[in-house]
């Protein structure tokens, strides 16, 4: 759709505003994998843990309410269970090993010109593009 880029920009500004709010008000980095992973593996304790849980509650709850009010679109995710599990494992393991994902390295890292953030973003973008090329155009799996 021709207006997709505009919605992308509006949504992007919302994502960045949420990250700015969390940083300036709470003094915390808005990285989705770090917040979830730190709660799961127990490395986040005390207020850092409870604030992460509140954040994750908003992250899961607000879109859920939005979709209950507006009607949920059907998911476009693949129904290939092997692909879903493999993808989930790669994303979970990779983001924790690299200490960040699209929000932490991409949004919070690049915006302060962090070398680690820029390097991580280039690597996961290139890996993602090669994966789609291999699995979609070469092997036709996805």
């Amino acid at each position: 759709m021709p207006l997709d880029w505009m919605w992308g920009l509006v949504g992007g500004l919302m994502i960045g505003s949420a990250a700015a709010l969390f940083l300036l008000m709470n003094g915390r980095i808005m990285g989705a994998s770090g917040l979830l992973g730190g709660v799961l593996d127990g490395s986040r304790r005390g207020p850092a843990r409870s604030e992460a849980l509140w954040f994750l509650g908003g992250l899961i709850g607000a879109p859920l309410i939005w979709h209950l009010l507006r009607g949920a679109p059907e998911t476009q995710l693949t129904s290939n269970v092997a692909v879903l599990i493999a993808a989930g494992l790669c994303v979970g393991f990779g983001t924790r090993l690299a200490n960040g994902c699209t929000s932490g390295h991409g949004v919070c890292g690049i915006s302060r010109l962090s070398l680690r953030g820029i390097a991580a973003t280039v690597l996961y973008l290139v890996a993602g593009m090669l994966t789609v090329w291999l699995f979609r155009h070469l092997w036709g799996v996805i």
């Binding site: 493999a86 790669c90 994303v91 393991f93 983001t95 973003t121 890996a127 993602g128």
Partner: peptide, 28 residues
């Protein structure tokens, strides 16, 4: 950092999901 990011990219490409959107779309 390098290995983790490449692994993450592979999973992202396979599914189209990264951690934030995976949680945001849990409800639907």
């Amino acid at each position: 950092l390098a290995l983790g990011s490449v692994l993450f990219g592979v999973g992202w490409g396979l599914s189209g999901l990264c951690p934030g959107p995976a949680m945001a779309s849990l409800g639907f």
